[in-house]
Every structure is written in C-alpha cells, then in structure tokens.
C-alpha cells in the first residue's frame, strides 16, 4: 500500500455518499415547526361559516391538522384513508382547506370579488366532501393561503400532529399512506394520548 491508495479511499467515501443519497428524497423538506407551537389563526368553519376556530380551542386535545383542497389530485389518493381513520379512531381531525379557489388556477382572480370567491369556495368544498365523504371533525377555510404560509405548507396534502399543549409534533408532506399511518402517526397519537 502506498499513498496513492488514499485517492481510492476518497473515491470509496464518495460512492458511499452517493449510495446513501439514492435512498434519500431530496424533495422531502423537514419542517422547522416540529417542536414549536402551532401558529395561531382564526378562520371560518366550512359547516358553519359564522363560527371560527383557533388552535387554542383545541388546547388539551391531541389532534390532526390536514391540509386539503378540491383541486388537489393527491388529496383524492389519501382521502379514503382519512375517511377510514375517522371512523376507527377517536382523534379530532381538523381540515384546512387551502386556497380552494385561488389554488385551482382556472379562475381570473383579478376579476373575482371577495364575496363571490367566498361563495364559490364554500360551494366547491362542500360539494367535494359530500362526494368523497367527510372525515373531518370540522374544516376551516384558508382562502388566500396566509395560514398555509404560516404553517410552511408547500405541497398539498400535508398533515400535522399537534399535542395537548399545542405543540406540533410531526409533519407529513404529501398523501398519507396506510403505511405511514400505521407506522408513524398511530404510534405517535397513542403516545401523546397516554
């Protein structure tokens, strides 16, 4: 062995890095909000528009916060799993409807008055839930996506697990699969509810 073999060692390290890299998902960005209090908001509810909800109303409970929209294709993939979940598990599931009208992309927002957007959003969201089933304890409406920004939403659907003291304990980006539900979310809920 001579000093030239060091180069081979460096190359081996590089290969190891690349091999590990193959199994990582570069698009999966961990949220800095995990371990921090759920950002405050006050938003109208879908079922009863005159009522609002804030995270502090959920104090003392472990709950799931799920971001969805009727235009979101992947939401359709995870929806049956949420419906199933809501039937079996007694944990509040709060929906955050994210930019129902604006996110769709099919509307010229510069010409839509606010009350029309509101009407359309409620109508579309309600219709979608009656069509696909409603797993949510209740849904709040984030028309302009500001709350979404506070929660660092970047890829709908997203799901947050929030504990009794109002801390975010986990965030999942993308559709929930049965595997993620069984292996990550359920054990965490059980632990938090102890």
């Amino acid at each position: 062995m001579n000093r030239y073999y060091w180069i081979l060692g460096g190359f081996a390290a590089l290969v190891a890095l690349l091999a590990v890299g193959l199994n990582l998902n570069p698009r999966d960005v961990p949220s800095p909000l995990v371990g921090k209090p759920a950002p405050a908001f006050t938003l109208s509810q879908l079922a009863e528009p005159e009522k609002t909800l804030s995270p502090k109303d959920m104090q003392g409970k472990v709950w799931l916060f799920n971001v969805w929209a009727s235009w979101c294709v992947s939401c359709r993939v995870e929806h049956p799993i949420l419906v199933e979940f809501s039937k079996k598990v007694d944990v509040p599931l709060i929906g955050l409807n994210y930019k129902e009208v604006r996110g769709d992309g099919g509307f010229d927002m510069s010409k839509m008055p606010a009350d029309e957007e509101k009407k359309l959003a409620w109508q579309r969201a309600n219709q979608w839930l009656s069509q696909h089933g409603n797993p949510y304890t209740l849904t709040v409406m984030d028309l302009d996506g500001r709350v979404g920004i506070d929660y660092g939403v970047y890829g709908v659907p997203e799901t947050y697990v929030i504990d009794k003291t109002g801390l975010i304990r986990m965030k999942h980006t993308g559709p929930i699969t049965p595997e993620i539900l069984a292996k990550k979310i359920m054990p965490l809920l059980a632990e938090l509810n102890k």
Binding site: W71, C72, V73, S74, G103, D104, G105, G106, D108, G155, V156, G174
Partner: peptide, 10 residues
Amino acid sequence: GLYLNATPAL
C-alpha cells in the same frame, strides 16, 4: 402537478 395540480404561470 402531482402535488398542486396547478396550471402554472397564470
């Protein structure tokens, strides 16, 4: 598109 299904660049 998979995540947001948005029509880009309006």
